[in-house]
Design a protein around this nucleic acid. Structure first.
Lengths: 140, 140
DNA sequence: ATAGTTGCAAACGTTTTGCAATGGG
DNA sequence: CCCATTGCAAAACGTTTGCAACTAT
């Protein structure tokens, strides 16, 4: 059931950001909700156009920017390439990047997080956010 | 003594990269050796021009690219902004970024490193490189 | 001599923005 | 109705590159 429900989750995302519900934004929001990878703006735009071919690049970038700014999306910039996006509502995790294939795996380590907090504390800081990326190769 | 020695360290850096010693590259290399922060390409270029005003932007970018590629420089891309550089010969460390002032502090945690290696291992990988950034605010 | 290096300016890929037209609340 | 939002095209940004002149080796 529910082939294409009224894209509830996507609309919820937009509402959470206090954005007006418009067709272009719905197309974009659905892409983000459905995404199982970490698409960049161009990919989000391209996928959104499959839902609504009239969506412009500008709207894709603008919507991503607002959602990220309001904390509903998380952004990543692996190395120096295009910014990639993912839903922030997903549980926090860090990334393990296979440098040969580009595959991205997610992981969490409570122990590492705890040590990070301690490091910040030792410097007189508290952590707002962090980013941990392991660039790896399959163990031989 | 040694007001402006023949920029030994800078030349050494270039030699290590098997680059010909030229005036523009010497100007750039000295900037990198002297840098106590994490300058981006534009900053390196601008500082290099203080030594030799004729250094072009292209040469700055080209030299940084080669040095980074040959492993003599490490690169960072905090958030989505311009790539920043630092000497790789310096002991490895991670970064704590003050989100209010932009100040960057360095730290190392052997414990965190060990846990990272373990995470990679659990996934069947070995770490080539990693990046850990703590975005922090001064503790209230 | 000659291959590596340079500055210039144009091109690049990604992202942002001014604008007049459109459309949601 | 009115202001947020849109698409378009131009611009901005950081970075790369083709080329003819130059220079370290």
């Amino acid at each position: 059931m529910s082939e294409h429900v009224h894209s509830d989750e996507g609309d919820a995302l937009l509402k959470d950001a206090s954005l007006r519900i418009t067709k272009p934004r719905q197309a974009i929001a659905r892409v983000l909700v459905d995404a199982e990878d970490h698409p960049d703006a161009e990919q989000v735009w391209s996928r959104a156009r499959e839902n609504d071919p009239s969506v412009s690049q500008a709207t894709a970038y603008r919507t991503l920017a607002v959602l990220a700014e309001k904390g509903l999306l998380r952004t990543h910039t692996f190395d120096g390439s295009a910014t990639r996006y993912e839903l922030a509502e997903r549980p926090h995790h860090d990334h393990l990047i296979d440098v040969e294939t580009g595959e991205v795996r997610e992981f969490v380590s409570r122990e590492i997080e705890r040590l990070q907090a301690r490091v910040a504390e030792e410097h007189g800081y508290e952590i707002i956010a962090h980013r941990l990326e392991l660039y790896c190769r399959k163990a031989g």
